[in-house]
């Protein structure tokens, strides 16, 4: 079993990373992965666009996705800052916890920092196991705790200027669902 954590400015090749989790490892029956991307709009914009849809015209509709976005909420660049040393340690600890909880073969986290643009990849979480449930659940667990525990901070820049992204209560709720005393934990802890 191996835990690999990389914090870097460079982009990553998700397909190559997933291939490395299976080639030469015939015990692997499942790989679950998550890729987080830079969006061209922020959550505030989605909410405001929904509220203003009726009256205001300063809205750019994403025709293909059906997502309406306030022009002011457009994101041109996203700059990620992190705490070198603590970040790696924190991501490793989250992976160790996931390995203690599920039967994993490998766990991989690659997280970028620096200035990124819409469609750029920010993070890759991949977990492998013999059976799919362990990989699926562990992947989500790692991502949920990464959101609340790993020391990264995002700053958006767009037509309205710069703005530090605020932490969401929903992220803490997502992580809290995995705690042993949370209701419904049995459903999330199901094994393969």
């Amino acid at each position: 079993m191996a835990i690999v954590v990389r914090v870097q400015t460079a982009d990553f090749d998700a397909a190559a990373e997933l291939a490395a989790l299976r080639i030469g490892k015939p015990a692997v029956g499942a790989i679950a992965s998550f890729v987080g991307l830079v969006r061209d709009h922020n959550r505030v914009g989605e909410r405001e666009a929904a509220a203003e849809m009726r009256a205001d015209t300063r809205i750019d509709a994403h025709i293909d996705t059906g997502i309406a976005v306030c022009v002011d909420a457009r994101v041109d660049t996203l700059t990620l800052e992190h705490y070198p040393g603590m970040t790696e340690h924190s991501l490793e600890r989250i992976c160790v916890d996931a390995c203690a909880r599920w039967r994993l073969i490998d766990a991989l986290v690659i997280h970028r920092y620096g200035t990124l643009r819409p469609t750029d990849q920010i993070v890759l979480v991949a977990t492998s196991s013999a059976h799919r449930a362990d990989a699926f659940d562990a992947c989500r667990y790692v991502m949920d705790y990464l959101k609340t525990d790993a020391p990264f901070w995002k700053k958006e820049s767009g037509p309205a200027g710069e703005r530090w992204v605020e932490a969401l209560a929903s992220d803490h709720e997502a992580a809290a669902r995995w705690s042993p005393d949370a209701a419904g934990v049995d459903a999330m802890k199901r094994t393969a």
Binding site: V123, K147, A150, P151, F152, W153, K154, W164, E166, A167
Partner: peptide, 10 residues
Amino acid sequence: VAFFPPVTGG
């Protein structure tokens, strides 16, 4: 010792 706002990675 480090001080910072709530984290927003991912």
